[in-house]
């Protein structure tokens, strides 16, 4: 499974990033709370280029270089094929950041760990897909 961005209909509004941040770190989708009280950290990034805008998000590769390269076994694949970070184990070596061919994994300098899309695996439909106002994001197998 992965989220596919439909560049043709991406507005570049940035709501995907906002709802992504709010869905993680225990804020359970409360946008106001994370932006007022917390440190919003979105997992996927909205990219802007001449051709348009699109959400750059993890492909959850079948042969994921980030899993292979992780020195502490922190990046794992769950039974649904979702590649996620186990924060108990991540030591912030950033091997995965260097290995990801798509630039989806980002350093989380504040916690000295990494950020990547986990397809909101604890809550169902990914928050970015659920909240895209123009149907520009789709969850595909």
């Amino acid at each position: 499974m992965k989220v596919v961005a439909w560049t043709e209909y991406c507005l570049g509004c940035g709501l995907c990033e906002i709802y992504c941040a709010a869905q993680h770190d225990g804020y359970n989708g409360n946008v106001l709370k994370i932006f007022k009280k917390g440190r919003p950290m979105h997992r996927s990034r909205l990219l802007k280029a001449e051709q348009g805008t699109w959400l750059n998000t993890c492909m959850h590769c079948t042969h994921a270089p980030c899993i292979n390269g992780c020195i502490s076994g922190a990046i794992k694949r769950d039974p649904n094929g979702i590649v996620y970070v186990d924060y108990e184990r991540c030591v912030g070596c950033y091997s995965c950041v260097m290995l990801c061919p798509h630039g989806h994994v980002r350093p989380w300098s504040e916690r000295h760990q990494v950020l990547k899309c986990d397809l909101c695996r604890d809550t169902g439909l990914p928050s970015c897909v659920a909240n895209c106002p123009n149907g520009a994001l789709q969850l595909v197998d």
Binding site: L11, G12, C13, G14, L15, I18, V31, L32, F35, K36
Partner: peptide, 11 residues
């Protein structure tokens, strides 16, 4: 309530 996300600016 405003979180300065800038969605209104962009839209």
């Amino acid at each position: 309530r405003c979180i300065r996300c800038g969605v209104c600016v962009r839209q």
